[in-house]
């Protein structure tokens, strides 16, 4: 079933890209979930949508943008959105979660305006909304590879600091860990991972790949390190099945990925109940 992915170059790219995203999204998702920030992925994916729509719109008028992968604009929007969320969380000290609906609705609002200006929905946009196997290009593969390497490196370097900051920010600061630069770096990584993940899972479903495998891992993991192992295994399983079924049944991969993740989550919940009983 999976062998077809090695017969055509474009499918090989999408398989590898998918595997990297199946790693990246749940991996970063672990930090988001334990910091109770999982909704940020929804807000940022919608901002990414407006970036993509903007790029598609510009593509109508300027040949430069027509040739440019819209993912770049999506990344730029996502990063600015992340920085805005951070600002807003400081403005509303006691209502931090407000930042998320603000950015989320801004993302959809701006996106819809750009889409209408570009004369409505077309096939391209559909692929961004729900993911696609066939639309993944070599350039997507390259971007995702770079981001995977960067995330891995930063993670190895700053694992202990991010872990401590997520667990107990006040104590981490007291022990001399530089919160601000590390938090900034983290937000940028989150924004980038969300922007690139949308290629495979689709903008509307990115958050599911970041949170559902983590939710399942939470039921099973002993300790923080195991969280990553479980979350990434679940993420990869769902992406592989998602891609295969997308190709053979001609469905959007995002939907299948979500369904598989939900099945895994149900199993994890049942299993942990059974184990505790």
């Amino acid at each position: 079933m999976i062998s077809v992915f090695f017969q055509y170059d474009f499918l090989t790219y999408s398989l590898y890209t998918g595997l990297m995203i199946g790693f990246l999204a749940p991996f970063i998702g672990v930090f988001l979930v334990v910091r109770r920030l999982s909704l940020i992925s929804d807000a940022l994916s919608h901002i990414t949508l407006s970036g993509v729509a903007f790029s598609l719109l510009l593509g109508r008028y300027y040949p430069f943008f027509a040739g440019l992968n819209p993912i770049y604009m999506g990344m730029a929007f996502s990063v600015s959105g992340a920085l805005f969320i951070d600002r807003l969380r400081n403005v509303y000290q006691y209502y931090k979660e407000l930042a998320i609906p603000i950015i989320l609705s801004a993302g959809i609002g701006i996106g819809v305006v750009f889409i209408s200006l570009a004369n409505g929905f077309n096939n391209d946009l559909f692929q961004y909304l729900f993911g696609s196997v066939v639309a993944i290009r070599q350039s997507d593969f390259q971007i995702v590879s770079i981001i995977t390497i960067v995330v891995l490196l930063l993670f190895i370097l700053f694992y202990k600091e991010w872990f401590y900051l997520s667990f107990d920010e006040e104590q981490a600061v007291v022990s001399g860990i530089p919160r601000k630069p590390l938090h900034f770096l983290f937000m940028i990584i989150v924004a980038l991972v969300i922007a690139v993940s949308m290629r495979v899972v689709g903008i509307l479903l990115v958050s599911s790949l970041m949170t559902l495998p983590v939710a399942a891992a939470l039921r099973l993991a002993k300790g923080f390190k195991q969280m990553f192992i479980y979350a990434v295994i679940f993420g990869e399983i769902s992406v592989i099945f998602g891609l295969i079924s997308a190709f053979h049944l001609d469905t959007a991969p995002g939907g299948t990925i979500v369904i598989i993740n939900i099945l895994i989550l149900l199993f994890a919940i049942l299993f942990s109940k059974y184990r505790r009983a």
């Binding site: 334990v34 107990d168 981490a172 022990s175 300790g223």
Partner: peptide
Amino acid sequence: FNSGFPATVFEVVSMGLYGK
């Protein structure tokens, strides 16, 4: 603290060394 946080006792205590 977030009491559902998935960290073991060992992991939590080792945080005390991170700054050092």
